[in-house]
Structures are given as C-alpha cells and as structure tokens.
Design a protein around this nucleic acid. Sequence first.
RNA 1: GGCGCGUUCGUCUAGUGGUCAAGGACGCCGCCCUCUCAAGGCGGAGAUCACGGGUUCGACCCCCGUACGCGCUACCA
Length: 485
Amino acid sequence: MINEFPRVRFAPSPTGYLHVGGLRTALYNYLFAKKNKGIFILRIEDTDRNRFVEGAVDNLIDTLNWAGLMADEGPKSGGEYGPYIQSKRLDIYQKYANELLGKGHAYRCFCTSERLGNLREEQKKLKLPQAKYDKHCLNLSKDEINKYLENKIPFTIRLNVKPGNKIIIDDIIRGRVEFDPSTVDDQVLIKSDGYPTYHLANVVDDHLMKITHVIRGEEWLSSTPKHVLLYNYFEWEIPAFAHLPLLLNSDGSKLSKRQGDVAVEDYRTKGYLKEALINFVALLGWSAGDNQELYYLNELAEKFSLERVQKSGSIFNIDKLNWLNFEHLRKKTDAELVSMLKDEVSKSEYDAVDYSDEYLLKVIHAMIERVNFLSEFITKSFYFFIAPTEFEETSRLKNWKPETPNHLQRLCDNFENVLNNTKEEFEVSLAKTSEELGIGKGKLIHPLRLAVSGVSGGPGIYEILEIIGKEETVNRIKSAIEKLS
RNA sequence: GGCGCGUUCGUCUAGUGGUCAAGGACGCCGCCCUCUCAAGGCGGAGAUCACGGGUUCGACCCCCGUACGCGCUACCA
C-alpha cells in the first residue's frame, strides 16, 4: 500500500563534486518531500570502485548542506534504513542476487570481457538491430558451473530477461512509456568484484528504504524497464517514477565540464549566493504558472509539484543567474551584508585594515545597486579601500584640462573648511567653488571623481567624499594633481 | 544502427480546443531621471507555436507521419 507520506531520495555517485544538474535533482526531491510532508533521503551510490574519489562523500554532503538541502536520512543524518552508503551494503545485494538466482531470474555468467567484446563487435558487423548479451552462460550445465566455481573462475550475475508483455512505465512527468522486453539486455547485476551495478543496488535500496517516488534524471528512463523487471521478479511494489529533463550546454548537449562550470562548488567560490543558485536551478524545468521569478527555498517548497515540471531539457543561462544573484544580494539585510563583506575583505588584499561596521555599511549602501557579486564591493569600488594609483585614460582625456589643477586646488582649499564630513557639506563647498571660479559644477565634479577614485563611474561623488572623508579627499586630490599634470 | 524522450521569442518559460493576430522574465535597444556608472520608470525589437498531414465549426493545445535534437545502448552511475 502507498505510504501516507512520500519518501524520496537523492542518490548521487561521489565523483568528487556536486554537479549543478545533481543539485537540481536533489532540489526537486527535497521540494517534493517538503511539499508533501515527506522524507528526503540522501544515499551514496559508490558501487564503482574504479571511480573512488577520496573525500568525495564529505564534499558532497557539505555542498548540499551549504545549499540548504539537509537530508532527513543519510550517511550523516542517520535513519532506520541505513547504512546509506552502498559500499557498506554489499551483503544485502548479494543476498537478493542469490534470491533471484534461486528463482531463475538471474544466472551466473563466466564470460570474459574479451568474449563480450568480440560478441559486441560481431553483432555490429552483422548489423543486428540490437547488441545484447547472447545468454551463452544461461545454458551452462550444472557440472560446468560447478567446475568453474571450483576453479574460482570470476563471474558476474546477470538478469534473466524473458520474453513477455510490454513493460509499461507511468511516468509522472512523461506519462505512459512502453518498452518491449526483447529490447532489454541481460544486465549485469553483480560485478565480478562482488559489487552490485546501479540497477540492482538502486532497486534493492529503494525497496528496502521504502522509497515511494523515484525522481531522477532523464538519462535513467531507458534503463527503467530493467528496474521494473527487477521489482516484478522480486514481487515488490513499484515506486512512482518521475524522470527530470536534462540540463544542457548552450549548444544543446548534456551540460558538461568542457563548456563552463558544472560544479556547484565553482559557483560557490565565484561568490554566487546559495539563494540565487537554488532559485535559478529551480526555474530550469519548473514553473509555478504565475509570473513570479524570485523565490526562496521555503516558497518553492510550498508551490512545487512534479506535474508542473517541463518535459524538455533546458539550457543553463548564466545571465539570468547573475541577475538573480543581484536581486538576492539586494534582499539581504544590512547586518548580513556587513558580515559577509567583512569576510570578503579579510580574504582580500585589504585585510590589513580593520574596517568598522559603520564604514562597510556606507560602502554597501553606496554600491549595492552597482554590484552583482559580493566580491565586487571590493573590485568595483576598490577606492574605498585604497587610494587610486592609476587613472582611467578616457576620462583623463575628456575631463582633465590644463586649468583643472588650479580649479581642484581651489576646491581643496574650500574642502579644508568642511567640518562634519557630510555629503551635503561637500556639495555646498563644491557649489561655492564653482561659483567663485565662474565655471559649471561639471568642470569640477568629473576631474574630482577621477582624482579621488581613478575611474569615471560609481556612486554619487558627494557620497564617495563622505565615505573616504575630508582628509583623504584632500590628499587624493593633491596626489592626482601631481600625477596628472 | 536499435530503443526511448523531446521540439512556444536568443535563453528560461505561461499556455491543457475558442478569451492568443501567443503573456511574463533574463538579455538586447531606445527614452526619462542624472555629476558618472548603476538602479528605477516608461517604451521597443524579438516566436508564421519544428515541418507536413489529419480530427474538429474552430488547434500552440488531440491523432498520425517527417525532420531535427538529446538520452540510453558497459562488469559507469
């Protein structure tokens, strides 16, 4: 009988990092669980010993937790259906493989990889519609099998696929999908090293862990008939399936390393907010149907449904991610921003100075509309942390005229009288200077900006002055007069 | 090759037979604002709904075919 509350799992293989496609699969599982008061399980599928990567599991969990996707059950969270790492469940798979062996739904295969390779090649040459294992070892006599066993000949255990009715999958996202059993290969279930393949392990674990909904990438759709057969042979209840569309490169191929960053860690180190990444990835393949674009994890969990997941793959479009990062950054509170910027500064080349919260907050208010990333508070407005040593050439050519040094000198003199360092005072003082000199304010503002910041863009000039202060302003102007004249 | 899945503006998408001569968002362009750069406001370009047949009074929406794309086709997941 269907459980009252769903149990879903994210089952990555620990290859060293979390793929953004994996993040989305994990997210959808998580959201589905939260929406339906279910349980979100993390299971590590590390049955390929050749692909073992030291520390990969810890890294995976760390990244998932960073994103806010805490597992209810898993290697770190525990749970009553553990262990949640497949390499620690070998005896379980063995037991079930033996059960299949006993029922005649599986058989030992002693074929060498060489014979398998030749077989494949031969079938290819004959242009056979399908390359499948030829069931050679199914016909071995008891004596032959015993002889092989005694001689310790390595073997695999294969699924014994029998002809029969169409295998029907009722996919939540794709609807009814049919497969003819004749197209299903006698898949290896237990490898010669004793480890199970994905197909056996995932079916056994999903059953034992009482998984109600299998939500995974579309690349698994083709092997689902094997899984269905397995459930049938075990006489187990089949979970609901939902095969998610793939995430793609800009050329439409499956999102891969070659064409940009695929590891969640990459985005994390580049300074993307977890809120932005989650928001972005949630919208790749799913929409609530309204026009909302900005979401937090908890809102997503309220609105999510598998029925509204798109069927076709979606291209990972970095522009929108950047925009979402900007939006989420702006939604942070002052306190959060200050603390984040503090971290950022301490990691930067300006870590020697201990900037006050008040100072950093001023920088934040001045720049928040102008940055997409936290790091840009430092790179785009470096002049709040250090005096400029270089001056933008185009602005210099446009704004630095022969008479400019004299004008700025006069401005400096007037600035000396500024008492409280407020932008209003600087504004009044500059207006006064322009009047005294009989020139437009622009004639002062632009070279002043260049002198003080080294660049032509940025916050309002008076705001910049207020932040760096009178003394520093005067020093910078003087220094610029020397350097640019 | 076989099997499976998919196809609405450049991109993410809304759309479940008439309200769609297709709506929103990112990006792009223009105008306004303005000391600059942003942000913001306003506006614009941008999709013969892959193509061809049906079904229907009527199709982006249903059916069939074709094309193209993608996935799987391992003792990898």
